[in-house]
Design a protein around this nucleic acid. Structure first.
Length: 941
RNA sequence: GGAUAGUUAGCUCAAUGGUAGAGCACUGCGCUUACAUCGCAGGGGUUGCAGGUUCGAGUCCUGCACUGUCCACCA
């Protein structure tokens, strides 16, 4: 070991992040360690949830980057071949909606009409690219150690290939189908949404109860009377005695629609007899629920009609009748209610609270409309998997894919498993086609003209063309006139038009874990991932995924769906669900509340490390947490504390030689001079060992907050407040201090990569800290064992003396004389007398005795059986007597409750022996202390 | 309607069933040459309420009350 006395370094008094961060990040990038190709070891992969290219990085992203980067850096230091794959999401609807809004703000009335498809797409692309660049630079600011060479985008060429491939496979498996069904339609956005994209909002509404006509036997209630123009049935509960006689009957009523309504009374157990009149007007075209009844009736061979009275532009159709056609739904409603009143059909009008689904991106209340759209069948059994998509998702989180426990996805916290299962129970087929333009175009082509030979499509060239099956053809009555071809590329021959629709953004992001790695491979199902060492083979399934609970349904389950289907693998082994960040008062961050915090501003003010630490401390999985300036300030102070711990060590102790030699230093060196270790050394090494194992265990189990807390306590309370103070007078701590500092920097690195790397460089290291091996005390050695408890006693003695000084308001520079009677521990106290004197107890003269004489005119303290007399000038007799009396009272209380417990035979016989013994020992101690206190009290004259 | 999380010091949060802890804020003292982005000391809690299980409950069970969130075929 070569030690040099290096000249004292001129480190700044406080750490200024801006002086280091960009430069250090550049150095990391240049080192190549972000790229797993330059690492060895077991693969470990995390696919970064791709931020939407709709704007800038927000605090939620900052939290996610922190969590991912902590895990990535920890695993990398643990010798894993770590891939943290970055990317962005084109966020179909979100991005188009945003750009359209901007264009409208610039004065355009209807961007889609005015610009047309290609020009609008060009505008969106420009915006997306700019936004992407911003976001990527912000991710770097967070210190995220991702492999930029593998940067992916959900809307780039490789990802588009994956999307087409999976769509086509699903189509061939009959999972993707085109159907005419009621969907959620945003009039404002002129597009569909899936059920999971709706945001439900409570709003006041009116509920009207009325009859269709004077002689109609039942009254019904509705909040949307205008849709009643399209009613084709009335549903009642089959058990409802009031209405049983009407079931099966058909009534007609003229309510002003184009044709008089033909209303069949049908029975459906879903109808609640006790709600309203117990009868529901069924509008199959404008209610998802009613549409289900319609389908049920059809399946039972007793079809009812479907009449669409509201069109895609939100206005009433011709079918609604002359008086209504062309009116908005609201206008039609007023008119209809007025008509009811005029004709004395209105029974009741009441105010209720209603929950309505709104489009998450366009904000308007969605209309239920019957339309021809593309869907994913979640219930159909897939031959190659022996299960439906729904069943596979369930299996993957409950027992494991294919019932293989090794392929079970573990969700942290576990409770979300139940949430997903509940959601799965209510899952309907997934509507995947969108009428917006920004997104993956549906790989389907149509041709109007007759075809002579439906099965005759050649698999020509590279294009994989699949004729539509007869079964599908029949299933899609609407599409009968068309020839349909599902293909990634435009088929040869004239007349083919591609489906104008695009795919739900989650269809592509569902493939994220493998589309980023080049999957799925082009092989027919089942697609075993075999062959060469592709990224897909190396890194899939990914090891860890994190996300907020708000996208569990939208994203997590879709990834499971896509991965189990396309790869026959789970997408990730562990998924960590984090909560939402809220402001100091518990409100969500949002533009409208004006409480948004820009992470970059926080970084500018406090540094990236402080931001990271403040985000992950005090959080628990699945629960929301609050974020506010004081928290970041605290983190900044901690970063600065660490800096100063290092500064103190570097400036006052000689460091390592700047040699290229491998560092030989380890705990083994201590073993050679074990006898040289002081009590404090043993104590801090014991603490360090516990810290390393504790932090390691926490990080292995994704307990980020707890790991950070342990590190904070060690750094600040143990190391800075005690050990460094001791190092100011105990000699020979070079090795130990550097060993602790190095270990500590490694442990802190995942949390605070910048400051730790900056200090590491100040230590003269050539290798980057990020590529160092994780902290370790090897081999575990008993050499410092037993020191901890003894040192804790010394700490208690010191604290008791300081306390007494403070309570008695003894001037800080007033030196005092002390006598310590320590019984059996006289040797320990003797050995540590320097410690006791120099740890700011102000003791000038210290006498240590076995069992001492009473010291007159002195403050008396007892600490774990050690008696301390402090002789102070101006001893206050009365104050001391009072204080002793209080102590005696407290001690008596303690003894009373302890004695009671120990007198209880149930306790002594049933409680574990070690606990009983501990309680007995405590009682003995208290009793002896009480005796001494009483003696002291009575000796005061 | 169902589910789920939470309710602990003024605030934000911790506590494998074994006498309740930390940070911030507060009080007193202190420029002790790593750090005032600091140090030392201190005050402050019947753990939402009511029962139960247990030798022992913040922790397990039941009910209730608030708060939040999710789901549902809320006509």
């Amino acid at each position: 070991m070569v030690w040099l006395n290096m000249p004292k370094k001129d480190l700044p008094k406080s750490y200024n992040p801006a002086d280091y961060e960009d430069e250090i990040y550049a150095q990391w990038e240049k080192s190549g360690f972000f790229n797993p190709d330059n690492l060895t070891g077991e693969p470990y992969s995390i696919m970064m949830p791709p931020p939407n290219v709709t704007g800038v990085l927000h605090l939620g992203h900052a939290l996610e980057n922190s969590l991912m980067d902590i895990t990535a850096r920890y695993q990398r230091m643990n010798g894993k071949k770590v891939l943290l794959a970055p990317g962005t999401d084109h966020a179909a609807v979100a991005t188009q909606a945003k750009v359209e809004k901007l264009l409208v703000a610039e004065g355009m009335k209807n961007p889609r009409q005015e610009l047309g498809r290609e020009k609008l797409l060009e505008k969106i692309r420009e915006y997306a690219e700019a936004s992407k660049a911003t976001i990527l630079s912000q991710i770097k600011k967070m210190g995220t150690s991702c492999d930029w060479s593998r940067l992916a985008y959900t809307f780039d060429e490789p990802r588009n290939k994956a999307v087409n491939e999976v769509f086509i496979r699903m189509y061939n498996d009959g999972l993707v189908y085109r159907g005419h069904r009621v969907v959620n339609w945003s009039v404002k956005g002129q597009s569909t949404s899936s059920d999971d994209e709706l945001i439900y909002m409570e709003r006041p509404a009116k509920l009207w109860t009325f009859k269709y006509s004077k002689d109609f036997p039942l009254a019904i209630a509705s909040t949307r009377p205008e849709t009643k123009l399209g009613d084709t049935a009335v549903a009642v509960n089959p058990k409802d005695k009031r209405y049983k006689k009407y079931i099966g009957q058909i009534f007609t009523a003229d309510v002003g629609a184009a044709k008089p309504l033909r209303l069949k009374v049908i029975a459906d157990p879903a109808v609640d007899m006790n709600f309203g009149t117990g009868a529901i007007g069924v509008t199959p075209a404008h209610s998802a629920v009613d549409f289900l009844m319609y389908e049920k009736q059809k399946a039972q061979g007793q079809p009812i009609d479907l009449i669409q009275v509201i069109s895609q532009d939100g206005k009433m159709t011709a079918a609604a009748g002359q008086d209504y056609a062309g009116l908005t739904a609201e206008q039609a409603r007023e008119k209809f209610v007025a008509w009811l009143k005029e004709n004395d059909l209105l029974v009741k009008e009441e105010d209720i609270t209603q929950s309505v689904g709104t489009s998450d991106r366009f904000g308007d209340v969605v209309e239920a409309l019957p339309m021809t759209q593309w869907f994913v069948d979640v219930n159909k059994k897939i031959p190659a998997r022996g299960a439906s998509l729904k069943e596979m998702i369930k299996q993957a989180i409950v027992k494991g894919h294919h019932n293989d426990a090794k392929q079970k996805i573990d969700i942290t916290p576990e409770r979300f498993e139940k949430v997903v299962l509940n959601w799965l129970d209510n899952l309907h087929d997934w509507c995947i086609s969108r009428q917006i333009w920004w997104g993956h175009r549906i790989p389907v082509y149509y041709r109007r003209q007759e075809i002579s030979n439906i099965s005759g499509f050649a698999r020509s060239g590279r294009a994989r063309q699949y004729p539509i099956s007869n079964e599908m053809q029949n299933a899609n009555a609407d599409a009968n006139a068309e020839e349909i071809l599902v293909s990634a590329e435009k088929p040869e021959g004239g007349g083919w038009e591609q489906d104008p629709d695009t795919l739900d953004t989650w269809f592509s992001s569902g493939m994220w874990t493998f589309s980023t790695l080049g999957g799925p491979e082009k092989s027919p199902l089942p697609p075993p991932v075999k062959g060469g060492k592709s990224d897909l083979k190396t890194f899939h399934p990914s090891n860890w995924m994190q996300m907020g609970y708000e996208i569990i349904f939208l994203w997590m389950v879709r990834m499971i769906l896509m991965s189990t289907y396309a790869l026959d693998q789970i997408p990730f082994k562990d998924v960590y669900i984090h909560g939402m960040l809220r402001d100091q008062s518990g409100k969500k961050f949002s533009k409208s509340s004006g409480n948004n915090i820009d992470p970059l501003e926080v970084i500018k003010q406090y540094g990236s490390d402080a931001l990271r630490f403040s985000l992950v401390s005090g959080i628990s999985p699945g629960n929301d947490s609050r974020f506010y300036a004081e928290k970041v300030e605290g983190a900044r102070n901690l970063v600065n504390k660490l800096w100063n711990v290092a500064r103190y060590i570097i400036t006052n102790f000689s460091g390592y030689a700047r040699s290229g030699e491998a560092r030989q230093f380890s705990i083994l060196n201590f073993q050679l001079n074990a006898e040289k270790l002081t009590l404090a050394d043993k104590w801090i090494l014991d603490k360090l060992e516990k810290l390393i194992s504790g932090v390691t265990d926490d990080l292995d189990n994704f307990r980020f907050s707890q790991a950070g807390e342990k590190l904070r306590v060690f750094t600040w309370d143990d190391l800075a407040d005690w050990y460094l103070e001791i190092s100011k007078f105990e000699q020979g701590k070079n090795e130990i201090l550097y060993f602790i500092l190095e270990s500590l920097l490694k442990l802190w690195h995942p949390f605070m990569p910048f400051v730790t790397e900056a200090i590491w460089r100040e230590l003269g290291k050539e290798k980057l800290l990020m590529a160092e091996k994780w902290a370790d005390i090897t081999p575990p050695t008993p050499l410092y064992k037993g020191g901890s408890e003894q040192f804790e006693l010394i700490k208690d003695v010191v604290a008791a003396i300081r306390n007494a000084r403070s309570v008695y308001k003894i001037e800080p520079n007033q030196k005092i004389k002390a006598v310590i009677c320590s019984g059996k521990r006289v040797k320990l106290i003797e050995e540590q007398s320097e410690l006791i004197k120099k740890l700011r107890t102000g003791i000038e003269e210290l006498e240590i005795e076995n069992t001492g004489e009473k010291v007159e005119q002195a403050i008396y303290l007892t600490v774990s059986g050690v008696e301390i007399y402090l002789a102070v000038p101006g001893f206050d007799f009365k104050a001391e007597a009072d204080r002793l009396a209080r102590e005696i009272k407290v001690q008596t209380e303690r003894i009373k409750s302890l004695s009671a417990r120990l007198a209880n035979k149930e306790f002594t016989s049933k409680a574990p022996a070690n606990i009983v013994k501990a309680e007995k020992d405590k009682l003995d101690l208290y009793k002896s202390e009480l005796g001494k206190l009483k003696e002291q009290r009575s000796s005061l004259k």
